[in-house]
């Protein structure tokens, strides 16, 4: 089953590359769409893009690591965006973040749970300062959080997906 989806993804990538063939300055849109297809940018995909666009793989890797929108590792089914903007910061966003990381059992530097259920990343502001400290899980916004209240909320998503 998984094999089949992967095969389909590569087919889509080939179509994508075909549509951008000979177009100058197409690296970033190609990377963005490739990431949409695969969920992240696997090494093989980058090598393929490098060859097809005739851009050195070192340069492609340089671009991918420059922009935070690109991801080299698989991402979880649920994306948590924890706001660390000024308003959230002064109202204890760090403690909320620590509580989430502890709940998810993430080690230093890890951002995705081993079961691929959650990926957590920090953002500078989600425009909901009145609800500080706040975060987004997928498309839902949650506000006025505390280290105590955040854990059960996460569990709900975990259970939902089950």
């Amino acid at each position: 089953m998984v094999e089949k989806t992967l095969e389909k993804s590569w087919e889509q990538l080939n179509q994508l590359l075909e549509s951008y063939r000979c177009t100058k300055g197409s690296m970033i849109p190609v990377l963005q769409q490739a990431q949409e297809i695969f969920g992240y940018l696997p090494k093989d995909v980058l090598i393929k893009i490098s060859k097809e666009l005739d851009v050195a793989i070192s340069q492609v890797f340089g671009v991918v690591t420059f922009y935070s929108q690109f991801h080299l590792e698989p991402r979880g089914k649920n994306i948590i965006r924890s706001c660390q903007g000024t308003a959230c910061h002064v109202r204890g966003a760090k403690a909320v973040l620590d509580a989430i990381r502890e709940r998810l059992g993430l080690k230093d530097g890890q951002i995705t749970t081993p079961d691929n259920e959650f990926t957590i990343e920090t953002v500078a502001c989600i425009g909901a300062c009145g609800l500080a400290p706040c975060l987004m899980i997928n498309d839902d916004t949650h506000g006025r959080l505390t280290a105590e209240s955040v854990a059960p909320m996460i569990d709900k998503y975990y259970n939902n997906k089950k």
């Binding site: 090494k43 980058l46 050195a56 793989i57 070192s58 340069q59 492609v60 890797f61 340089g62 690591t65 420059f66």
Partner: peptide
Amino acid sequence: LDVYAFVNRGFKTLVEPAF
């Protein structure tokens, strides 16, 4: 040959080969 490129950004920038 393009062995090297700038990798990452800001303070974390390094000159590195791919990956």
